[in-house]
Amino acid sequence: MPPTDASAGTGPGSVPLHPGDTGPWDFRGTGGDGAWGKGAGDTSSFGDGEDTLDLRLPDEFIARFVEPRLAHGLDDLLDQIPTWGPNPTPVGMFQLVPVRLEHDLPLVRRWMHDPAVAPFWELAGAHNQTESHLRAQIDGDGRSTPCLGVLDGTPMSYWEIYRADLDPLARHYPARPHDTGIHLLIGGAADRGRGLGSALLRAVADLVLDRRPACSRVVAEPDLRNTPSVAAFLSAGFRFEAEIDLPGKQAALMIRDRVLRGLM
């Protein structure tokens, strides 16, 4: 998982993810050894082998809700991310564009092999490791969608938008239907240290709430010990809900509520 942008916001109250660090951001949190570790919504394994794909949706659910939407070409579980369109943010016009494996793999692979990123996302090993990580989501049942974040026409970040209520994360907190999780990596060194992190976290969380009317909150799970990361979520309008035990880490459950979005 990615390391960090130098500052978490765009103005006063912005914090570095690690003091003095200008590396890429990963808002999935750190593993038990203090390094950035696998996130709960990741389709790769936790430290104990827990995997998003191991949480199989019941066949009855798929037959009733997923397959009919897929048959009509609709994004089934995340409300048609491809239709969300470009949106203005304080840092420019931003759009989530679902990853096209044949077109975007070289870019995502390059980001994952950045020495500042590789130890944290753990996708820089075998040549096809990044491809397998992306393909598992693209060819999956729709619970997680890998996206490029395109800012003013330029791809500059990698996102995973996932159904937290249908993810192993839901085993560790009182999930509500349609809870939506987010992961973020700011890819290029030129886009780090510009204060993009908190601004984009807030923008994407609000975008999820705008485009997913059934979703009442957006969640994340940074390592509890990483105070700057928790502060970054706070500056992006998330609130601290609870400490939760996840494989490999004690996490801070961070939530951005629909009902509080105008106040935070």
Score class of each variant (00 low, 15 high):
residue 117 V to D: 00
residue 117 V to I: 12
residue 118 A to S: 06
residue 119 P to L: 01
residue 120 F to T: 00
residue 120 F to A: 05
residue 123 L to T: 04
residue 123 L to F: 04
residue 123 L to G: 07
residue 125 G to F: 01
residue 127 H to N: 04
residue 127 H to R: 01
residue 128 N to G: 10
residue 130 T to N: 00
residue 131 E to R: 11
residue 131 E to G: 03
residue 132 S to K: 09
residue 132 S to C: 12
residue 133 H to I: 00
residue 133 H to C: 10
residue 133 H to E: 01
residue 134 L to G: 01
residue 136 A to D: 07
residue 139 D to R: 07
residue 139 D to G: 01
residue 141 D to N: 05
residue 142 G to W: 02
residue 143 R to C: 02
residue 144 S to D: 03
residue 144 S to K: 07
residue 145 T to E: 08
residue 146 P to H: 02
residue 148 L to Y: 07
residue 148 L to K: 04
residue 149 G to C: 10
residue 149 G to P: 06
residue 149 G to V: 06
residue 151 L to R: 00
residue 152 D to V: 03
residue 152 D to K: 11
residue 153 G to I: 04
residue 154 T to Q: 06
residue 154 T to K: 09
residue 154 T to G: 02
residue 155 P to Y: 00
residue 156 M to L: 15
residue 156 M to P: 03
residue 157 S to M: 14
residue 157 S to E: 07
residue 158 Y to V: 07
residue 158 Y to D: 03
residue 161 I to L: 12
residue 161 I to Q: 03
residue 162 Y to F: 14
residue 162 Y to R: 08
residue 163 R to C: 07
residue 164 A to W: 00
residue 164 A to V: 10
residue 164 A to Y: 04
residue 164 A to I: 08
residue 165 D to I: 04
residue 166 L to M: 15
residue 166 L to C: 10
residue 166 L to G: 01
residue 167 D to V: 02
residue 167 D to K: 10
residue 168 P to Q: 03
residue 169 L to K: 02
residue 169 L to E: 13
residue 169 L to T: 07
residue 170 A to C: 09
residue 171 R to P: 08
residue 172 H to D: 05
residue 173 Y to E: 12
residue 173 Y to W: 12
residue 173 Y to V: 11
residue 174 P to Q: 03
residue 175 A to C: 13
residue 175 A to D: 09
residue 175 A to P: 12
residue 176 R to C: 08
residue 177 P to V: 01
residue 177 P to C: 07
residue 178 H to Y: 14
residue 178 H to Q: 14
residue 179 D to E: 12
residue 180 T to R: 10
residue 181 G to W: 02
residue 182 I to F: 08
residue 183 H to R: 15
residue 184 L to D: 09
residue 185 L to F: 01
residue 185 L to V: 15
residue 185 L to Q: 05
residue 187 G to A: 01
residue 187 G to C: 10
residue 187 G to F: 05
residue 187 G to L: 04
residue 188 G to P: 14
residue 189 A to R: 15
residue 190 A to D: 15
residue 193 G to H: 02
residue 193 G to W: 07
residue 193 G to D: 05
residue 194 R to M: 10
residue 194 R to T: 08
residue 195 G to T: 08
residue 195 G to L: 06
residue 196 L to C: 06
residue 197 G to H: 01
residue 198 S to H: 13
residue 199 A to E: 11
residue 200 L to S: 06
residue 200 L to K: 08
residue 200 L to A: 12
residue 201 L to Y: 06
residue 202 R to H: 15
residue 202 R to N: 05
residue 202 R to F: 06
residue 203 A to F: 01
residue 204 V to I: 13
residue 204 V to C: 11
residue 205 A to P: 12
residue 205 A to Q: 08
residue 205 A to G: 14
residue 206 D to M: 09
residue 207 L to Y: 04
residue 207 L to K: 14
residue 209 L to T: 06
residue 209 L to Q: 11
residue 213 P to Q: 08
residue 213 P to E: 11
residue 214 A to Y: 06
residue 214 A to R: 15
residue 215 C to K: 13
residue 215 C to H: 13
residue 217 R to S: 12
residue 217 R to M: 13
residue 218 V to L: 09
residue 218 V to P: 06
residue 220 A to F: 11
residue 220 A to Y: 05
residue 221 E to Q: 15
residue 222 P to M: 13
residue 222 P to S: 11
residue 224 L to M: 15
residue 224 L to F: 10
residue 224 L to K: 13
